[in-house]
Design a protein around this nucleic acid. Structure first.
Lengths: 297, 297
DNA sequence: GCGCTCCATATCAATTTGATATATTTAAAA
DNA sequence: TTTTAAATATATCAAATTGATATGGAGCGC
């Protein structure tokens, strides 16, 4: 059979302390056990590892050679154990999430902030990607969790949990301010003006595409912004009408040149979802973040 | 208590093969045992290491982290085991000996030659030193064995075994050839001529110092050679009278200008001894060399 | 649905380990 | 020299662990 690796641990300790008796106390064992263990080990290896004397033991040349390897090996194991234990105590670790910009702005930034303060040793890696990209990263296990805006296509291996609903509003710059003055606008009216939106491969695009389709309209934005952050400045400079979450307008005084355009029918609510793999085998850091996100409710 | 390192071996194997069943066959065990072992390990570490499925198991993030360390560790252990086993099979290894020049020339060179042919993988490190130096190296465990000429001072921690006796003869060059023609010379006569010898810190010097003292003479060599090899050339060029082992003259025709000077009383025999530490904890290569040296008898 | 393959669980004998008492060795102290 | 002390070696038996077998359950492909 194989040589018990526990014998090697005993070997390691005995070699380190140069004494069966001392090693026994360190290993919470007793001297006769170690004597027996080393004897077995020597028999299995077929060589003598220690020179015994009345004042302790010393490594033989063979023993030294073995010790060179074993000591390196065991220090690695100890590092491994340490890392696991640090991760368990949330003193260290890594959690990776994918988040769409809207989800980031409207929901999880404050959560991440709290998480970071509570567990400063844990690194948070955020991939700021569109919902479909996040789903793909999830499937490849490149991120632990994704927080994205619906609609998303979750395959069989993913599960999603609705976290929060939010509503978007239409906004225009100074040039479009007048549009909203005669009461609610209809989609059809909006469609006559240039529209600023995100790229076609985002759930936001998908959402508005479907929304317009329901009214028999084609959603054909004139300007595709690369990031949600760019929409407000584009609107501000009168390049078109945009749709942004209500939250984006908070703390943005009208003096900024951005005006909410009242709609005849409000844009349906959208959902922010947490998505993760079904066989969730997350590390503790990710589990804890998930818990905090869900606790936000 | 500590985590059994045998559990880590099981972890290593299961991770490597991605299957309890396969790992079980490799480890000559059975699947339920591994299931139990990994379960215990997970409980002790406090985290899940594998995602089980119907087609095998996969590492969790925590498991991956652990595996990084454990795999390195176990490869080291395997190297260690391999090295021991190679050394055991005499395919590799190192044996270090200290040998005085006389011992080298008169005795062990042919043995080393045979040893080398028989075990080409084992390196032989020869420290060509004087007997007292060899003793010191032995005491510091810097060499495995020493083969030197008596007399030597072995402390309590060393043991010596007589290997062979040899006799030295006085030799002179062309200029001293006539000395030997009227029958045996006495030491006193020799003492009148310049003498070539080794340095004061050699057992050879010690030997002749005592020998001369017994005849009430002082051994005062005019020339101290650094190595025994240099004695014959010095003698050849008529720089003095030297003492060399009979063997040194074998195959050296008189044409070389070196002549044995017959003595009234032959120089007492000297011994070549094997010396080693009492608690001999030699590796197999050294043990085998010792065996071959003793077998020479 | 059936059969196949995998992991999970239960159980008991066999082995190994843990613990204590005691013997032996050896160097240093009296 | 004898004693003492400190280390390892040996013996023994209960306790814990491991090995092995039988069995159960879940998922995948046909």
């Amino acid at each position: 059979m194989y040589i018990s690796y526990d014998y090697y641990r005993i070997f390691y300790c005995v070699a380190k302390y140069g004494s069966f008796t001392q090693a026994a106390t360190v290993l919470l064992s007793n001297q006769p056990n170690l004597t027996r263990a080393i004897k077995n080990l020597e028999a299995e290896l077929g060589c003598t590892l220690f020179v015994r004397s009345n004042k302790g033991v010393k490594l033989t040349p063979d023993g030294e050679k073995l010790y060179e390897h074993i000591s390196i090996a065991f220090e690695h194991i100890q590092h491994g154990e340490e890392e696991i234990s640090l991760s368990r105590s949330m003193q260290r670790g890594l959690v990776t999430i994918g988040a769409s910009e809207i989800a980031l702005h409207c929901f999880i930034l404050p959560i991440l902030n709290r998480y970071r303060q509570r567990y400063p040793g844990i690194r948070i890696k955020i991939s700021n990607v569109s919902a479909p990209q996040a789903v793909s990263l999830l499937k490849d296990s490149l991120i632990d969790l994704a927080v994205v805006t619906a609609p998303i296509e979750v395959g069989g291996e993913l599960i999603e949990k609705k976290l929060k609903t939010f509503r978007e509003v239409a906004v225009g710059g100074e040039a479009f301010r007048a549009l909203g003055e005669n009461g609610g606008l209809r989609l059809q009216q909006l469609a006559e003006y240039p529209i600023v939106s995100l790229g076609t491969k985002t759930s936001t695009y998908e959402f508005y595409f479907r929304l317009f389709l329901q009214s028999g309209l084609t959603f054909a934005p004139d300007i595709e912004a690369a990031t949600a952050d760019q929409i407000l400045p584009l609107v501000q400079h009168n390049l078109g009408i945009g749709f942004v979450p209500e939250d984006f307008l908070l703390g943005q005084p009208h003096a900024n040149g951005i005006y909410e355009l009242p709609l005849a029918e409000p844009i349906p609510e959208r959902d922010i979802c947490l998505v993760k793999k079904k066989n969730h085998s997350l590390g503790l850091p990710a589990k804890e973040l998930e818990r905090m996100i869900l606790a936000e409710n």
